[in-house]
Structures are given as C-alpha cells and as structure tokens.
Amino acid sequence: MAALELLSAEGFRPDGRRPAELRKLRARMGVFAQPDGSAYIEQGNTKALAVVYGPHEMRGPRSKALPDRALVNCQYSMATFSTGERKRRPHGDRKSSEMSLHLKQTFEAAILTELFPRSQIDIYVQILQADGGNYCACVNAATLAVIDAGIPLRDYVCASSAGLVEDAALADLSYLEEAAGGPQAALALLPTSGQMALLQLDSRLHEDRLGAVLEAAGGACRAVHAVLDRVVREHVRELTALLGD
C-alpha cells in the first residue's frame, strides 16, 4: 500500500483543507441543567462534552482543602464507543490519567482560583467521538463550560494541535494525520496575552522547524478563540435579552 499522501502537490490535505485551515467548529453552552456549567463542542468529527461542578465545599477529606485557593479537579474520559476500535474502559488508563493531569494544570493556570479558598472546582470532560485533537477539543469544551458556570477566568484557554509534513506545518490534525506519526505538538494558549498554558511536543523535531510548528498551532488557537468568543457572546446576548430587566 502506498503511503498516504498527507499533503498533495496542490497543497491540499486528505480532507481537502489547506495547511492552516481548521476543521468545522461548532459549539454550544449550557447543555445540561444540573451541573453548574456545561458545554459541547464539535471539531470536525471529534465531539466532546464538558461539565463543571463548583466551586463547592470540598468533597471527601477536608484536609485536602487549600487555604489560599480553590482545588481544581479534572477527569478526562472517553466513551467506550468513541474510538474506531472499541475501548475497554472509559477512564483510569495511563493515557486518560495523563490527560486529566494536563487539564488540571491548564485550568489552574487560567482560573482565578485565589478567589475561592477552601473550595473545589470539578471539571469533567468526555470524548463522545474521537477523530484527532481529542485533548484540544476537551480544553476548548472545558473553557466554555467554565465560562458557563460563571467562574472567573484570566482569559479563554484555546487549544489546537499542529504537525509537520514535508516542511509544511499543518494545523488542527485529524486522526488520519495524527496516525501517520509525523512530529506533532499540542498547544493551549491564553490568546490575549499569548501565554502558553500547555505545550507538548511528541517525537523529534529539528529546532529550526519548531518555530513554524508553534506558529501554526498558535494561529489555529487564535482561530479557535475567534469561534469560541462568538459562541460566548451570542449566548450572553441571547440570555441578557431574555432576562430583560
């Protein structure tokens, strides 16, 4: 079998996108009634749900409470039917534990936790359908859910992946492109300040190329930010109009 061509001579990717183009991104805030905040996001065929509970009193041992800020607790899980081949367990494996930790670090950097001493904020994300960029979709969904819950954030957290194929940097990789095994990076950005909340580079990449990959990822993050911002503003405008007063 011939190796799949990830970038055609005309500069198109297997799904017809340009190198810097994102997949179609759709999102909604306030999906569920019971949690404090919730959101759903679709990035191409990757679909993720996020819910936020809190800030609330510590669950379990009170000794875990932090005297000066809120504890951020995250769980990343994947529906057993989300992947091409059925997953045995939704969470608890090494990969999801790592993802949970990443999420926690990302949101500790973004949430103004010092406003809520001794309390706890739970962020639970769930991949319903996996088609590449799972972590990034989760971060984006979780950002919307945190905003929906009215928890103060320094800024949005927007995430996107990027990879390198024959000198060209590709943004927002699909599963097909991820599976090809080229160098790839995941980046979570606070877009206004340009601060990076998470940066992860898998596999070897020449130092000279890093700039191009990061630039592609950063550009994609800003594009994601534009979409998320539109979703949030629409949501806020709609609700304020309804509430009137």
Binding site: F32, P35, L49, N73, Q75, A79, T80, Y124, Q126
Partner: peptide, 16 residues
C-alpha cells in the same frame, strides 16, 4: 453490555 456512569452525571461517579 457496558454501562458507564460518567462523572458528567454527578461528581459522586468520579473515578470508580
């Protein structure tokens, strides 16, 4: 059959 009571539903379902 497999039933995943995810933490989405309630924080009590977190972890195991």
């Amino acid at each position: 059959f497999f039933v995943d009571c995810s933490a989405n539903a309630t924080p009590e379902f977190e972890g195991r």
